[in-house]
């Protein structure tokens, strides 16, 4: 798997280069999803992530964290450090994911009150990320080979012509029965994705709210996930993004988790 593709921020990156190359290929659903998946990636990045959770009554809760990501020889490493809310400030998570098939992630947590780094189970990726409407799986890049893809049709979204592609898991046990994505034909940007629960009902919808071009990369900087069943939603915003700054392997250590980013 390419560097960083399973990480939070990279999942929202879209390579511009594919907009020209894909035109020469046969536009099957799989080739489109593969082109999106195999986009070029920066070697590393830093960013601030702010998540705003909004309940059905409009009440908001804010989570903010700093994160650092890089890839080293088939191992994608990431540290996230919470800045808010106050009771979890300084708490950090570290995740190492491996290109090796079947090898699970290694994860650790540091809680400043306990002053100790603890290895934790990486199971339960279908669970909520920080209480938001995103699951850990939603924030990672899913390899196209794990799903069967079908082009359902075309539609214009925000002034851009899009493919509508349905993806159905090949194996049972996934969190969703299927997803439907709207992919820009000209830029290979995913504008929207619907997630369906195991009973086939619409569960939630991911919408892209803002994109920015940074060097060779087109960054999706604001998104929203809305749960259609609970009417709860989460806005996710990336700021202070730095790419290819040369983060060293030593920056993903027990000491880094305790010291802060």
């Amino acid at each position: 798997m390419n560097a960083l593709q399973r990480s939070i921020l990279p999942a929202l990156l879209l390579g511009l280069a594919f907009a020209t190359t894909l035109g020469a290929e046969e536009k099957t659903a799989l080739s489109i999803m593969t082109a999106v998946y195999e986009r070029p990636q920066p070697a590393d990045m830093k960013a601030t992530l702010t998540m705003t959770l909004v309940d059905s009554k409009g009440k908001e809760r804010v989570r903010a964290l700093e994160q650092r990501l890089a890839s080293f020889g088939g191992v994608d490493k990431k540290i996230m450090m919470f800045q808010a809310p106050a009771d979890v400030r300084g708490t950090s998570f570290m995740n190492w994911s491996y290109a090796e098939a079947g090898k699970g992630d290694d994860q650790w947590i540091y809680m400043p009150a306990l002053k100790r780094v603890k290895r934790i189970t990486s199971d339960g990726k279908g669970g909520s990320f920080m209480g938001s409407d995103f699951s850990y799986d939603d924030l990672g890049a899913r390899h196209p080979s794990r799903d069967d893809h079908v082009i359902l049709g075309s539609e214009t979204v925000a002034g851009e012509e899009c493919w509508i592609i349905e993806s159905t898991p090949k194996e049972a046990g996934d969190g969703y029965s299927r997803t439907v994505s709207w992919i820009s034909k000209s830029r290979l940007i995913g504008f929207k994705r619907d997630y369906y629960d195991k009973k086939g009902a619409l569960l939630k919808t991911l919408s892209v709210l803002e994109t920015k071009t940074m060097g060779a990369y087109l960054m999706i900087t604001r998104t929203e996930m809305r749960n259609a069943q609970s009417n709860h939603r989460t806005r996710m915003e990336f700021t202070a993004i730095e790419l290819d700054t040369g983060i060293a392997d030593e920056q993903f250590s027990e000491r880094a988790m305790m010291k802060g980013l």
Partner: peptide
């Protein structure tokens, strides 16, 4: 010592 085997963390 601590390590992960599948879904288990062993300590």
């Amino acid at each position: 010592a601590a390590g992960a085997i599948g879904p288990l963390v062993l300590r």
